[in-house]
Every structure is written in C-alpha cells, then in structure tokens.
Design a protein around this nucleic acid. Sequence first.
DNA 1: AGCACGCCGACT
DNA 2: GTCGGCGTGCTC
Length: 839
Amino acid sequence: MESLFGDLFDDLESKSARFADVILPVPIPKMFTYKIPKSLEGEVGIGFRVMVQFGSKKVLTGIIGKVHQKPPKEYEAKPILDVLDSYAMVNPLQIKFWSWMAEYYCCHIGEVMNAALPAGLKLSSESKIQLNPTFDTETSPYPLDEREEVILQALASKSELSYDECEQLLGIKSIHGIIKSLVIKEAIIVFEQVKDKYTPKVESRIRFSQPFVEDRKSLETLFDELSAKPKQEEILLKYLQEVPIYQRPELNVKGLDKRIFADAGLSMSSLKTLIKNGVLEEYKLIISRFEEIQGNDEEVTLSEEQNRAIEEIKSSFQEKQVNLLHGITGSGKTEIYIKLIEEAIASGSQVLLLLPEIALTTQIVSRLQKVFGSKMGIYHSKFSDNERVEVWNGVISGKFSFVVGVRSSIFLPFDSLGLIIVDEEHESSYKQFEPSPRFHARDAAIMLSWLHQAKTLLGSATPSFESYFNARIKKYGYVQLLNRYGDASLPEFLISDILVDKKKQLLKLDFTRLMREKIQEALNNQEQVLIFQNRRGYAPYISCEDCGWIPECEHCDVSLTYHQYSEEMRCHYCGFKEKIPKVCPACGSGKLSAVGLGTERIEESLSLLFPEARIARMDLDTTRSKYGYQRILEDFGAGNVDVLVGTQMITKGLDFDRVTVVGILDADRILYFPDFRAGERAFQQITQVAGRAGRREKRGVVIIQSRKPDHFLFDQVIKGDYKGFYLQDMAERQKFFYPPFVKLIKVSCRHKDYKLAEKAARHLHNLLLEVQVKKIMLGPEKGLIGKIKNQYIFETLVKLDKSGNAQAIFKHELRRILESMYANKEFRSVRIIIDVDPY
DNA sequence: AGCACGCCGACT
DNA sequence: GTCGGCGTGCTC
C-alpha cells in the first residue's frame, strides 16, 4: 500500500518537475540547477545522465541528483541540452549513498560521482571544429594566412577536426590563436562533441542469406555451381558442418563466428566472394566480455562448527545489522560465505562480497565461480573500462545478482541488496587515500547496507580493533570459528635473534642460522618456503660508506629506494627515477653500498645461499601486468618454485599445502612503525603470514627474525592470544586518546612554498581550535613525509569526542572554515586535504 | 578544475 | 605596437 502511493507520488512529481539538480564533475561542493525543457519532460529523472552547458562554452555530462519545481531565485537556470540514457544509470539509493559519503568524508558529491562511475560511463567532451556552411572563400572580406588555408583545406575533405588533429596538421603547439582567428573570420564553427567511451565488444558472424535457408532447392543448385570452385565450396561445407541448417534452420539466425573459418585455414578471399555474391552475409553481434560459466551448484559440505556458525550468524542478524565473523586462518570462512550468499540470492536479494585487491585474483574467486557461475559478476581494478561497464549494466539488468569486487564495487547500481560481506575486514587497502573521496570501503559498506536495510558480515582472522571493539560493546554481533578446517594444526613459532647471530658471525646475507637451517630442511624434503619482507626494491636506500651521503628524491622528502634489477633508484611516492651514481656526488668516494633489505635483495641472497633452489619474487614490480600475479601463483602452486619471496601480497589467498616454512626477515620494521596502529598491524601481519604455513598434513614452522625477540607482541602472536593483545593495546589507546575512543580527522595543507604551507596550516589550526566541541588537537606539524611531489605538507590531527553530535558540529564548522580559507587571497592556492578516519 | 578577463614583459 | 605570461573570479 505504502509503496504504491510512494510510486504514484514520485510519478506525479517527476511529471510536473521543471528543474533538475545536476551533479557535475567539478570541485564545487554543490549541485547545479538546470531547467528541464518541455521536450524532455517525462524523459528524465533521478540518475539519468544529461548534457548541460557549464560556463560559457564547456559542455559537461552530469547525473541528475534531484528533480523539483522550485525555480532558483538568484539566477536564471540554463536548460538541459540532452539526455543520454533511456533508463537511469544510477538509482536513487545510490544518490543517497553518494550524498552520505560526501557529507561524512567532507568532500564534494562530484568527487564521489567521479569515483563511483566507471570511466566508460563518464562522457568525455572534446572541442572540435567544422566548416561554417555560410562561409565562402571568394566572398569573405577577411584574407586568410597560409596556416589558416591548410586547416580549411583539411576541412574540405574531413567534415570535422579535433584540436589535436589541427596541431598535428600544422606541426605547432598552440593552435588556439589560429582557431580563434578563423572563428572571428566566420570560417569555422567550434563545437563540443560528447562521446560515449563504452564500446560494446562485437564479433563478426557469418550466415547464409535468407533465400538459401528458405529454399532448399536453391542451395542445391548453388552447390552444383560451386563444384568448380572448391575453395568456396569448402567454406560452405564447413558452415553446414557447424550449423546444420537442413535439420535446424533456426540456427542460421545466429550463424557462425567469422574467425572459425580463418582458424580452419580456409580462404578468406573466397569467403569475401561468397558475401559479395550474396550467398553468405556478415553481421556484427554484440557479445559479452565475460565467458559464460555454468555454475554447478556443487554441494558444499560443512563441518559441524561451520553449521553452528551459520546458525549463530543468522540468529544474530535478527537483531543486529552487522556481524563480525572471527575465524582463524584456514577455518573455512569461504564455505560459510557461500551458504549465506546462496540463501540471500534465493530470497531474491542482491549480494556483494568485498575482497581486498590482491585477494581477488586467487583461488577464492574461481571457487565462487564454480558455485555461482555467470550470475556472479567480478569487479576488479585490473579490468578494462569496458569490462566494468558491463558489470555495471549487468547489475542493472539483473544478470548479476551477486558481485565479488574490490572496494570500488560498493558503487555498483544495486537496488535491493540483502547481504554485504566484507572479507579480510581489517585490510588497510579498503581505505582509499588518494584521491578524494578518502573513504573506507568497510565503513561505507555498512552504511550502504543500512540504506538497503540489508545485513553486513565482516570476516577476518585478525579483526580490526574497531570492529572487535564494536562487537564487544554489542553494537555488532560476534561469531567465532575456533578450529582449523580439516583439523590442520597451527604452526610452530620460532624467534631468531638477529643480534646474537651477528655477534657470533652466524648471520649470512641477513639470514640467521636457524632460518637457513629450516629453509634447507624444507628444500631437502621437497617442501615450499615463503619469505616475507614488506619492502620492495633491492634495498631501502644506498649510502656512502665514507661520508654517509644518502640519495634523496628531488620532489619528495624521502630517500630513493635502490632497485638493482633495473639499475636505478626510485621514489616510491612520485615515481621519480635516477641512475645509480658510480661515485658519491658528495665526497667522490666510490664506496656506495646498499643499506637495509628489500625483496630483490633477499631474492639475490637466497640464490647465493641456496644455489639449487628455484626462487621467485612477488611484489608490485613483478605483478604489474594483468595476469602477473596469477602467473606467479600458478607457478608456485604447480611446484615450479621452491622459495617465494614477497611483500604483503603473499599473505593473501595463498593456500598451498606444500608450504611448511614461513620466514619473516625483519619483524622489527613492522613493529616500530610510527603510528598508533603499529601494534595492531604487526599482530595482524605476522598472524596472517604465519597462517600460510602447514595447512594440511604437516605442521608448519614460522621463523621470525628480530633484534628484539623479547617483545611482548611475539609472545601473544605465538599463543594466538588476540584478545590479550587487544586488551593491552586498547588500554594504551584509551590513555592517549586514539580510536576507537575518539574520532580522528586529519587536516593537511599542501603547497610548493614551504613557508606558505606552514603559515596556512597554522592559520587553519587556529580557526579549528575555536570550534566549540570537545576535542584534542595535535600539530600543525610537518608531515611524516614532509614533501611529496614538490609539495610541502603540514598536518593537524583532530581527535574528536565520539559522544553526542561533536562530529556533526565539527564537520559543519570545518566546511565554513574551509570556505573562509579559500576566500582568503593569501591561502587561495594552498591545497587543503581532509581525511576522515585516516590510517 | 577549466576558462575568461585583465594587466605587465620580450618579440615581429 | 602585439603575443602571451599567470593572478583572480565564476560556473546553475
């Protein structure tokens, strides 16, 4: 009843709507009101893409966020120029979600839209020129110069030219002046062309022309005629073999993929002749970029514990919107997900499963694909734009009722989500840092599921302390899985003291004796080894042994990482590269040596220590290509590699039975990271890496090299005492006011002028101090990295009281303050960046 | 963000 | 004299 009236009302509203507030991809924090012209009445509504004029000449495409009949007071609304869609690309729920995100993360809704839409749905507008039809060279009062003539001649043969093409034509850089002059002389017209970037994938298909299908006699006559032309005959026979149109004439409609003839080695020119003579015809078929996969609904058998967990989750969902599933590595969370997803789909809901980027290319996806087949969509950052648009459309059309994807898949056009699962909920890659919106996909997913009145399941072996905190205060439900699936035992932990070995001269190429022995043992037994070092490159930096000089990035305040393989030094913040100097530029000494450990160097050390072992490396540098990651994993899985060295990539989704030894070379680096989450992260990372050891028959060994083997964290990791560590860390956080006890907002100022950046940050800090809410402020301080890409950074950290409406008030005031900063001439050019829930 | 308008240096 | 530099102001 209610929904009926709701629909009716909406309908009435849209029929009489005369104005539309359009979300545009511009960094201005509001929507823009345009008039809906009579001709488009009833053709547009929320979520339609429209073309509008913005400014004097620019044509932009935006999305309608609201329709209404309130004429703007201060200005005359311009009309919408055109609608691009016959149905809404974005639904009203998404607009609500975008608005919430813009509000919560203090950014503009246009920025959210930018992040949400796959590039293929954003339209690019490009200025082009065409001949002015009323122009005549003979009668024109204006003389044309040589270059202008060139352009006009080109336009005679080609109806339009882009600016780029004009530049190429004349071979000069600034074409603007010439074009302007031609416009003044009324010789050409400049227009904006909007082009849809999405191009459907097409296949050329061949089929018989209709007469031959309807009339069997004509086909026979044809064969008689062609007996003298064996090549053409061959083609027709091939076709009939694949498409038996005698028995099933209807098959001719779909025809046959053209490539089949080429693959069979048949003459393409004969095929052309047949088409030319009207025997065969060629047509284009729009096909999906995704292969059809039949799900086999394989029966998943669950352990008693898994069944119990499912029941607990379901009953907990009765009263709680969010549930935390805390299951140690290898406890079989995937099966539980499958069961819950199946049930949600069966009840007619959509389901979203979020995975961290690097886990998506692995076994879990192929596993799910086997169960769900092609009703499952995959949304991955390595997919092309076109592939993403197809997933987007597939969600709208209902083809995909279930999507597995990375953080940006929360933006897909779901309209009836029933369940969102966030796997590896603690993963920091769920947080987007650059560019804005700086959102956390887990937190946004909880909001999204709330908008859909759906449920959220957070899964992790090592939950984020926030989520665990929320579970403990009963805001979230909490379900635990305690046993490893198939009763695989937890690995044995060994802590190896780097300093002791160093003193005894037992440290060889950064490997302690214990580490070397265990690796050798595994190699002797034909078992596999994982070595974890969360630092790519050869070494963090090189240094001059004589004067201590360290090469630094020209644009950022960091040392350059030494990459031996490519023989260069690279900045991991801006991508700056430099050749390695032969001698120290500071003192001329030739003694430059690598300091510290990176994956490349470890790979090299391993091949020196274990010359017989097959070694591979997995980090950002070896997995750049679309399938790089998969290839390395497959190699490892097939047993072609004995030792795999890698960054945190190896902690995800690797599920190989033959790994018995896991080595962590420099645990201290994880432990002493300068941020309040260091302990939590260290616990998570070590536990996750350790979870890769010994999954089935044999108990694995985890060797941790450290200079501080007595650190209390090791003890708790070894015992698997998550709660103990949590409680200890929480006490610290409460004492020093860190989340989850406060809300953090980081406000930074960036500018190429050091002094100005600092001054702006001071000023901003003072303005923020005046906001009347309970809070603590730190800073302004030079950022941890003081300069990135030639921009100096100063930061203020605000710790807000979580109770009451301190957050809302502060964000509101923040907006006002930002405007005042922007209105201030002095600080206009300073970039101010707001990061809500940083880290 | 673009892009226009507007006021000061080095070029045919 | 002009072409072109980038400061600053606005976009429904």
